[in-house]
Design a protein around this nucleic acid. Sequence first.
DNA 1: AACGCGGGGTA
DNA 2: TACCCAGCGTT
Length: 349
Amino acid sequence: MNFQKEIEKWYEIHKRDLPWRHTRDAYVIWLSEIILQQTRVEQGLPYFKRFLEAYPSVKDFAAADEQQVLKLWQGLGYYSRGRNMLFTAREVEKYHEGCFPVQYEELIKLKGIGEYTAAAISSFSSGEARAVLDGNVFRVLSRYFGIDTPINSSEGKKEFTALAQELLKGQNAMVYNQAIMEFGALQCKPKSPDCIVCPLQESCYALRHKRVNDLPVKLKKLVKRNRYFNYFILKQGEKILVNKRGEGDIWQHLYDFPLLETLSEHELFNQDLDQQIRNAYGKDVLIRSLMATKHVLTHQIIYVQFFALDNYIINFNSGADIKWVSRAELDELPQPKVIAGFINAKLTK
DNA sequence: AACGCGGGGTA
DNA sequence: TACCCAGCGTT
């Protein structure tokens, strides 16, 4: 039996029962695929269900507003996915009469849909013969065929794309694409895969050459940047001051609080910063520490401190990005995880 | 081609 | 701690 048939056979036995595997509706598949970008199935599943319930059709999605979409997306990360989905839903309403495209060449034009997602949606909804190439497929092919070209180089991308497309020939794209990804996720796992029970153990290059832990090859490590966020909680009666985050940084269009970013953790106790606070909020402002925490992202580590400011004078222009909201309104705003955590822990309902 | 973008699971 | 996850958009 060849590679593809072994994979499909394994899949029929071990596949998980996932809701998006029971439909060929391109809209529903699109929803699942965007949510699952860089996201584990177990993490994305509850979000998929909530989104499908909130927006049963692309028409419903197109009618949503950004704040509502981001609130539903809260906690899932990579928030541009949610914003791009809204944009694309509206495009589909406008230019495809609400009928979600199923062809690769149409899908690839849409915002938030790249080569992987276009291949996934087209093959799962219409059976188009486009090979999916995601982290799972890279790993399986790299190990089984012993390819050590870095998967994140342009050469590697070309090489693996060609191989994946070649392997798809003569297969049922709808089944085979699902199968090889599921095989990568459950059997050919990144760490300590169970090669002892793998149906491909005899023909797998990496296993025969003891290279399972070396493949796939990936170029360079990510350098994490340290950042220090000092948030200020300002209250006026029932109202609290919030800030809508702008372009060019993390958490675009989500809400946090007035922020002073510093270059080191203890800078807050430096005179300069103390002076900055007093300049911004008034000379006699009282600063009370409320909470300190470390928030780890893929590309940065953020040391976050929250302070209550008492006796402050509002001394800054309240631009469109800053506003006073009630506690009930606050709960409706989309927030980064660390902000939601603080509100939950330290602000009374 | 390189970089920025979240949050969580695993060993 | 280090790596990875049904990647994509921007520069």
